[in-house]
Design a protein around this nucleic acid. Structure first.
Lengths: 203, 203
DNA sequence: TCCGTACTCGACAGACCTGTCTACCTTAAC
DNA sequence: GTTAAGGTAGACAGGTCTGTCGAGTACGGA
């Protein structure tokens, strides 16, 4: 961990980049270790010294995706003040990812469907889902909704569905479709009567 | 195809049943041919004589799921008269499947995420998605909605999201969550002005 | 009785998989 | 100059995978 300048990325970084590209585009089971190390230009021993096993590399790859998603959403949230707009902004951020021609569905959902029950891989995916649900619930609570948990779950359905539709139907507009539906749900869900100030936030 | 009584199912039927159980619960790549034929109590040659390849078996398994889904939805549709209630009935039917303890997410989505691009497996999954989207669009057109296609896509997002949430979050109530959101969308979407009779259908 | 159909059993080829191991190289710090 | 860390190269073990093949069995109909 000494001098890791821009000249040449460390084996760890090159492995993560290769894993990200190959696992995401082709699937985890279909891509073997040999292809990963070849794509990374790294020796096999480096992989096992750094990540202990293929599963370790897979988890690190998912953690990387998770961190990137948090960053993207965090950046989006700063662009808006009102919680309602922040919620819709999350769908805008989702839509941005859809425009990438390499977009291939939710990495966590795909990894989960390839991983065995109770694996470390599934754990990472569950963490990411819980994070997003809690984020929605927090924003909705701040916006003064009477039942933020149910509404958060409904928004999460739209979020998941949009990701799936964007990849399976090759339809990047799924994000705007989901955003429009989310907007309707936000407009019609009851606000709590205890915080009249929140009512004023409604357009 | 002579006397196939209840005494003993044909090799084809036993293979399909085993494939359905194993592929759905554990994934397609993880389950090898040997486990399928062992579970089915069938010789390996029977598999290759009947389905030509593993991919052939996988496609047949998905076709079976597709047919079952069509049957389930068709049965549900007969229980209601009004298109609006029929749409919501589809979500009820979805919720029924969630109550099965073996429920493990949408078989087509999972298969797609394991299959290579442009494979026959993906084709079956796309057929199933197109069928459901067209079904929704048809019902919404009959219900007199001004933009049935967009609304159908929104409902499909909820449908997909519910299936994913039910499995990833182990939350069968995702169906009712989705149904409630769908109900809101149906209540607020504009109807076409050309068919005032459809307006009368609104509660 | 004979024939065709559907099926079983087990061995096998050839490829691919993960993970380990030995041996060697480069670089930087002390 | 020595030492330690991080990396490279490639062979190898031991297993699993799909798909093929030859040989044999059970049975129903002509």
């Amino acid at each position: 961990m000494a001098a890791r300048t821009a000249a040449k990325a460390s084996a760890r970084e090159r492995l993560l980049e290769a894993a990200d590209e190959l696992f995401y585009s082709e699937g985890i089971q279909t891509v073997g270790i040999d292809r990963v190390i070849e794509h990374a230009g790294v020796a096999k021993a480096s992989l096992y010294n750094t990540f202990r096993s293929k599963e370790g590399l897979v988890c690190a790859y998912l953690e990387l995706r998770f961190a990137r998603r948090r960053d993207l959403v965090a950046r989006t949230l700063t662009r808006f003040r009102a919680p309602r707009e922040q919620v819709l902004g999350v769908f805008d951020a989702l839509g941005e990812t859809f425009t990438d021609p390499r977009y291939n569905g939710c990495a966590f959902a795909r990894a989960t469907s390839e991983a065995p029950e109770n694996s470390a891989v599934r754990k990472v995916a569950e963490d990411c889902r819980a994070w997003l649900r809690d984020l929605f619930a927090g924003l909705l609570t701040a916006a003064g909704y009477a039942d933020p948990d149910t509404l958060a779950r409904q928004l999460l359905l739209l979020y998941d569905g949009a990701a799936q539709s964007a990849s399976l139907d090759h339809d990047p507009s799924a994000a705007t479709t989901a955003r429009a539906a989310a907007s309707v749900l936000l407009d019609t869900a009851p606000l709590t009567t205890a915080t009249p100030t929140a009512q004023a936030l409604r357009p």
